[in-house]
Design a protein around this nucleic acid. Structure first.
Length: 161
DNA sequence: TATTGGATCGCC
DNA sequence: GCGATCCAATAG
């Protein structure tokens, strides 16, 4: 995941102020911010902080921790497309599109977060600069990407950065 | 109204 | 390294 924090964060869509697209980021925490990238992929964010302070976390990947039960509850997603190592691939596998933009994940029955009991150690969380935000000047260097050292979530190319 | 480039991915 | 593919943001 990566964090995008405030209007002063040059890497954030919200750095250009409140627009029709980024209005969600200026809203209540717990809502989904889903946007189209490069004309063909959706990216899922969860809005954080508070109203009128634009911030969100971009979900860049996931692992199945209890695959057997998820296979029973999810439509057909992960079966065919098992790789959730990338923001576009994750939304494609989980069928998350802009139809879910602004979805209130606190009350939604379509999209929400659950605690499955899986626990990680703090030492497993690594940080790095965010991916694909070279346009952001010095903010591109902020270590606001968080990922797990194990299991390996990242493709070979990403690991080498 | 027209142009530009992107919080990506997969193939060359 | 590069094309796909479309739309938000910005400029005119």
């Amino acid at each position: 995941m990566e964090s995008y924090v405030g209007e002063n964060d040059k890497a954030s869509h919200a750095s250009r102020g409140k627009t029709q697209r980024t209005a969600v980021m200026f809203g209540e925490a717990g809502h989904a911010y889903v946007y189209l990238i490069y004309g063909m992929y959706n990216c899922l964010n969860i809005v954080t902080e508070h109203k009128d302070f634009p911030a969100a976390i971009l979900i860049r990947g996931a692992v199945l921790t209890n695959a057997r039960s998820y296979y029973l509850t999810l439509p057909s997603p992960i079966l065919g497309e098992g790789n959730l190592n990338g923001p576009g691939k994750l939304t494609r596998a989980l069928r998350i599109t802009r139809a879910l933009n602004n979805e209130d994940m606190v009350s939604s029955k379509k999209l929400y977060v659950v605690d499955d009991g899986y626990r990680i150690k703090k030492s497993q969380i690594l940080t790095s600069p965010r991916i694909g935000v070279d346009y952001a000047g010095e903010d591109a260097l902020l270590p606001w990407r968080y990922y797990l050292s194990s299991p390996p979530l990242l493709s070979k190319e990403r690991r080498q950065r």
